[in-house]
């Protein structure tokens, strides 16, 4: 008789020694993996509170100690990063771009996705297929031509140039269409009989049903625009039009102490991480739900 089978005979399953050992191994592995995620962030935050001198003269530490081993916090790194990033202007720019793009994306994408999922009109599938086809085009193809187009439209050197090219997303339309296809048709039929117009059915009835997906897409769209890096560089050069991402890249390229650079990285990444912690239930739940249905 095998050892595990003996255990099974003598103990109720959930208390068996083997299970406890296995669970321990699982926890150890997961916690070790967790450390690989927490330590870098912790290190970044701690180092951003030290001086470069202290950093250079000590070995590995996760405590904000100075060169003599005493705990000390150097918030002046943050004030320097604040002014280097030109945070006020840059934060406002980023928020304008992200909010407009997120709202526009959710509305316009869902509008198109609903049409592709539910409305019957001439050429629907062909249009959809052409759009899907464009999803395969790598983003780098677009950089130069899009600059030429924005130049032609006269919107370079403005926040509009960060908004217009990203007002919609074919990929999000694709995901939303899948969601709409999964919505029970009967609800819509009932509303139609009651005399509701197409737009009202879409906006008042179907859209609320896919709310979890909308939240996920909203977050990812927001995040994507928040992180967008190459394009803003190409299209806007005026420092007054920088976004958090480009401003951080500028900080990284200039001659600052490493501690100030890390302070900048903390400042720029903090808002998204905070939003994530606040909305994590929706984000994690929605991503998982989207994985199944999408």
């Amino acid at each position: 008789m095998k050892k595990s089978e003996v255990a099974k005979l003598h103990f109720p399953r959930r208390f068996s020694a083997g299970t406890v050992a296995k669970k321990t191994v699982v926890y150890v592995v997961l916690i070790a993996l967790c450390l690989a995620f927490i330590v870098p962030y912790l290190w970044m935050i701690v180092t951003s509170l030290r001086t470069e001198m202290a950093y250079n003269s000590t070995g590995f530490t996760l405590l904000p100690i100075d060169e003599y081993g005493n705990i000390s916090f150097h918030f002046e790194n943050y004030s320097e990063a604040f002014s280097a990033l030109d945070l006020g202007t840059v934060f406002l720019n980023t928020m304008i771009v992200c909010v407009v793009n997120t709202v526009a994306n959710l509305f316009l994408n869902s509008l198109a996705a609903y049409a592709f999922a539910r409305l019957k009109f001439f050429g629907r599938n062909s249009v959809f297929r052409v759009c899907l086809f464009s999803m395969m085009v790598p983003g780098t193809v677009m950089l130069v031509p899009n600059y030429l187009i924005c130049d032609f439209l006269g919107i370079t050197d403005s926040l509009t140039a960060l908004i217009m090219p990203f007002l919609m997303s074919i990929y999000n339309i694709f995901l939303l269409r899948q969601q709409f296809l999964g919505v029970d048709k009967e609800i819509e039929e009932a509303a139609k009989i009651e005399g509701a117009g197409v737009f009202r059915i879409y906006f008042r009835i179907v859209l609320p049903l896919v709310k979890p997906m909308l939240i996920v897409l909203g977050i990812t769209t927001f995040m994507w625009n928040y992180s967008n890096y190459l394009w803003p560089y190409i299209v806007n050069t005026d420092p007054a039009l920088r976004t958090l991402s480009t401003s951080l890249a500028e900080l990284m390229g200039a001659d600052y102490d490493l501690t100030v650079k890390l302070a900048g990285a903390v400042i720029v990444s903090a808002p998204m991480i905070i939003i994530f912690f606040v909305l994590q239930k929706f984000i994690i739940g929605g991503t998982m739900a989207g994985a199944v249905k999408g």
Binding site: I96, V97, V99, V100, V103, A104, F107, G154, I155, D157, S158, L159, T160, A161, I163, D238
Partner: peptide
Amino acid sequence: AVALALGGCIAGSFAACGGS
């Protein structure tokens, strides 16, 4: 409200351009 927010934001960002 949605229409206004959208329109307003887009118009606003248009206005932000120019100048230089």
